[in-house]
Simulated assay, not measured.
Amino acid sequence: MNSLKILIVEDETITAMDLSETLQEAGHQITTIARNLDQAVKAVKSHPPDLALIDIELKDSTGDGIATARELLEYHRMPIIYLTANSEPKTFQLAKETLPAAYLLKPFRQEELKLQIELAYYQYQYNLAPTVEAVGSDYLYLPVDKGYEKIATDDMLYLKADGSYVKLFLASKMLPYHISTNLSHLAQYFSTPNFYRLSRSLLINLDHMERLESNYLFMVNHKTPIQIPTASRKELMKKLTVVRTK
């Protein structure tokens, strides 16, 4: 496997060093060892990693590992692997909503960690690659109510990740569809230039965007504003033909 740039978010020094040594021995590069949410965000902005390994329980941090993962994914899309001593079902369910690539319990086993990292990155890359059949499709058949319903891709306003589901908002329908999958998988079916990945949890159809404000955008026939992540605004503006005044 190729060498990966990996961010470690771990507040226990000994564990962090063990992780770092294990991963470096496997040929990977550690971008940063962050102890809290703020350090992790700073690290992602300055040295974007290929993958993040995050402890869920972070002391002296403004957010735990799950909150940290959500924040990081707003700035940079990548696979997340949780490493924690907490095996409580409630914690696992909360972690699952961020669609992690793996959830490993401490004490970690070196060989298992190496394998999970390789699998996580391979799956992430696979989900990013569009299928031949998806490119240029004008219509899709979505799995709805134990069957498949035909929709026009041009009718799609935007797609929003919602836990283990994706909400699909259409211009012609009041209520969204709920599809049991992740957004990375569905995004491959919307690969034309008018679809833009605004964040890890949002894919929008630029053709249906009717208004843009400093922090929000509005879609046609859709009253609910969509917040624009700070890190995405500059790139979004490049996709639009904007008339600027002196």
Rank of each mutant, 00 (worst) to 15 (best):
Q116W: 06
A231L: 15
I151K: 02
D60Q: 08
G163V: 01
L58V: 09
Y103H: 09
A102S: 14
T230A: 13
S232D: 08
Y196F: 15
L140Q: 11
A43R: 03
R35W: 13
L240I: 13
L23Q: 06
L105D: 11
A152Q: 07
K173S: 15
N215Q: 15
A16G: 10
K45P: 09
E25D: 09
L72E: 04
Y196A: 08
K5T: 12
L73C: 08
Y141I: 06
H178V: 15
E213K: 07
K45W: 08
F218S: 03
G27Y: 00
E111Y: 13
T13G: 00
N2S: 12
I14Q: 04
D145T: 13
R77W: 06
S199C: 10
S20D: 05
E71C: 06
S232I: 14
L115T: 09
A26V: 01
L53N: 01
I204F: 11
V44H: 13
A231W: 10
G65C: 08
N86T: 06
L203S: 01
Y126I: 03
Y124L: 01
I30E: 05
L58H: 08
P79L: 03
Y82S: 01
P48E: 10
Y196V: 08
Q29H: 14
E74G: 12
I226A: 00
P100F: 08
D55A: 14
Y196P: 08
A129M: 15
Y189T: 08
A95R: 08
L186D: 06
V144S: 07
T13C: 00
D64E: 04
Y141K: 10
I54T: 06
G65Y: 06
S46C: 12
E118F: 10
S87C: 12
I54R: 02
D154R: 07
T245N: 10
